[in-house]
């Protein structure tokens, strides 16, 4: 009884049916939160006295950057589940998360660069956070490329799992080394001085957007997972029945 909630994830059919419902809830919830948070951040939050209006980019940049990092960790959890419990769905999740992770990493890099132009006067600086984000993008690219190169989906999934696990062990080392390298080389003038805590009128919309983007990511991952499950289970009876009913 106690482990039922976990083991039912082993059934693609159970997932496909439930995920459709969850997706609906997540989609509308995310849309509401994102519209609310973004409009609040863009129009109602006070102007930053140092950066002016350009700071409003953080209402997109910060949630997306959080998500980009969290998704790699989520991928690693899926890899563990794949190897320990041999759960096929974990591999499907890994495949979906890699694509979403790359998209969000790219978005956070671009929004960071655009924010950097008015703030630092240049699109790109070799700042610690920007550099480790760039490396994260390459890690996601590697996972996607590896899967694309191997034909057999089971084998591709396991190969990606190994890569993700090795990557997640290295990720903190990469992050710390990049930070150390940055303090070694970076002239202090380019660093944004640590500001005092944000007033509530600024961080509440940010919080709304962070939650919104997380739920949006769940929505997107569920959607992509459902499509992949259908494709992979195309020979099973329940899929055939489902399609012929439609």
């Amino acid at each position: 009884m106690g482990w039922r909630w976990f083991h039912q994830w082993g059934s693609p059919r159970w997932f496909y049916e439930r995920a459709g419902r969850w997706q609906l809830v997540c989609g509308w919830l995310a849309l509401t939160l994102l519209i609310m948070g973004s409009l609040w951040g863009l129009a109602l939050a006070p102007v930053d006295y140092q950066q002016g209006n350009s700071y409003r980019i953080i209402y997109l940049h910060v949630p997306v950057a959080f998500l980009a990092q969290a998704l790699y960790a989520a991928m690693a959890v899926c890899a563990v589940v794949l190897f320990v419990w041999k759960m096929k769905l974990a591999d499907v999740a890994m495949q979906s998360i890699a694509v979403m992770g790359l998209a969000f990493t790219a978005l956070s890099l671009i929004s960071g660069a655009v924010w950097g132009k008015p703030t630092w006067g240049t699109y790109w600086v070799w700042d610690a956070r920007l550099t480790s984000m760039l490396i994260l993008a390459f890690l996601y690219l590697g996972v996607i490329g590896l899967r694309a190169a191997i034909q057999d989906p089971d084998q591709a999934g396991k190969a990606c799992g190994i890569l993700v696990l090795v990557g997640v062990v290295n990720l903190p080392i990469i992050k710390y080394s990049v930070e150390w390298w940055n303090t070694l080389h970076q002239p202090a003038s380019l660093k944004l001085t640590e500001k005092p805590a944000m007033p509530a009128s600024m961080w509440i919309p940010l919080l709304v957007n962070i939650v919104g983007y997380y739920i949006a990511a769940v929505y997107l991952i569920l959607g992509s997972m459902r499509a992949i499950v259908l494709e992979r289970e195309r020979r099973s009876a329940w899929v055939r029945e489902l399609v012929s009913r439609a």
Binding site: I135, F138, L139, L141, G142, V143, G145, L146, A149, L163, V166, G167, N170, I173, I174, S177, V178, W180, W181
Partner: peptide, 15 residues
């Protein structure tokens, strides 16, 4: 591809 996949992990060593 094998090279491209592993390159990011070289970062700490290079630094």
């Amino acid at each position: 591809l094998g090279v491209l996949v592993m390159m990011p992990l070289f970062v700490p060593v290079v630094i």
